[in-house]
């Protein structure tokens, strides 16, 4: 690595970057109350995994296009997940009047007790 700041970028750096993005997305999923913000931070998690796939595919010694091909499918499927999730969030908003998760939980908690 040496004393130079601009050392050669290795697979390790991409792995650490994708781990950091994964944990930021995990914090966003677990801590945020807004439904749409939860869905966006879920996309961060999926993007971190895609970045890891691409870095493994491009740092391999032999040329392999399996990782590149897999990432295209995961991109499409994650867009589909987001579309369905956004639709459910809109339905929940039309039924309950807000998209705050804890308020929705408190509304339905009283119904379950009856």
């Amino acid at each position: 690595m040496g004393n130079n700041i601009f050392y050669c970028i290795t697979l390790y750096d991409y792995q650490m970057l994708s781990i950091i993005l994964f944990f930021i997305g995990l914090i966003g999923v677990s801590l945020s109350r807004n439904l749409i913000k939860i869905l966006i931070s879920l996309e961060f998690v999926i993007n971190a995994v895609n970045l890891l796939f691409i870095s493994f595919a491009s740092y391999k010694s032999e040329p392999s296009y399996l990782g590149y091909t897999l990432v295209i499918f995961t991109t499409g499927i994650s867009a589909l997940i987001l579309a369905v999730g956004i639709y459910f969030a809109y339905l929940i908003y039309k039924k309950t009047g807000n998209i705050d998760v804890i308020k929705i939980y408190n509304q339905y908690k009283e119904i379950d007790k009856c």
Partner: peptide, 8 residues
């Protein structure tokens, strides 16, 4: 088997 710079 799948990485170039192992020592890092």
């Amino acid at each position: 088997n799948c990485s170039v710079y192992v020592n890092s």
